[in-house]
Nucleic acid binder design. Sequence first.
DNA 1: GGTGCCATGTAACGAGTTACATGATTGG
DNA 2: CCAATCATGTAACTCGTTACATGGCACC
Lengths: 176, 176
Amino acid sequence: MSLKHAILASLSKKPQTGYDLSRQISGSIGFYWPASHQQIYKELAALEKCGWLGFKEVRQDEKPDKKIYRVTREGLAELKSWIEEETELAASKDALLIKLFAAQLVKPEIILAVFEEQRKKREARLKKYLEIESHYTGKKLGVDAKLEHLSVRRGILYERAWAKWAEETVEFLRTL
Amino acid sequence: MSLKHAILASLSKKPQTGYDLSRQISGSIGFYWPASHQQIYKELAALEKCGWLGFKEVRQDEKPDKKIYRVTREGLAELKSWIEEETELAASKDALLIKLFAAQLVKPEIILAVFEEQRKKREARLKKYLEIESHYTGKKLGVDAKLEHLSVRRGILYERAWAKWAEETVEFLRTL
DNA sequence: GGTGCCATGTAACGAGTTACATGATTGG
DNA sequence: CCAATCATGTAACTCGTTACATGGCACC
């Protein structure tokens, strides 16, 4: 659905290769729109075919050749009109909640271990967000940097909400 | 990936038809694992084929005939072992964040309108969660009801975190 | 000599969406 | 007469994952 638009948005700021995109996507954008390099190359080919992207090939000596993609006029128009379209609520598919739903099938220790494992992962992610945030605080930021900062803020607030919820939940699970 | 397990989990509590599942999924479970009836019927057929579900056909006079599915021993074993498996962090793909990322391409009024529209939807969802929660509060709950209540709690805490984040974000967008 | 970076993809599969299809009963 | 509820699905498609494939350079 909107990996296409994530790619358009990123390339609209700066022409890049598929490789660059997949690197970037495992960083900032990737937290809220993960994608494999295979999927990215596929979408790039599709976007080029429908005229929203163009590219130029760059020969390199010591490294493999590469294709630098940029957004076309049509692509930019599409991106703008997509922004104005209605935005559906993001579906939050979470296997953890299914496990919680079926918690009675297994011993309490097991479901508590599942939560503890998840807590560690969440905590690690929060730490990463906070580290990224530290690069933004205390400086005067341009608009683009401020927008990126805000997307990191969402991550931080979500992780804190998760931690609070997990506390409530674990407290109950311990009574089983 | 785990619609299969969502179905197993639900049927493990109570044998049901595909129709029942799709009704239920547009209610409680559906908030964190939405699925269309088409997808549910497909998965039911697949789960039956691999031996994790069985069904009996029930003839009805005034209504169409139906198939009531139940989890087999093998299905239950599978569900239990899946619960113990590692749980990856849920990916939160959110088109709104892509729009925010590309916000500079459009007039500030437009991106503010996008946020306002989203705020309304989020608020409506929060209201729904709170309404569901009201059925759980003030009563002595069984374990299953308590687990359901906790999944609603997640929704409530998430929505409140969203609202807080949106406030920060809109405050900035207004300065553009 | 092994790992990791750079850089591109193909092929097969699985998961999910959209559109289409059927048909009886109940209630306003 | 129209809409909703009950109840099941098929077909075509898009989106995403997993596995496989290539190949040179730099660094330890």
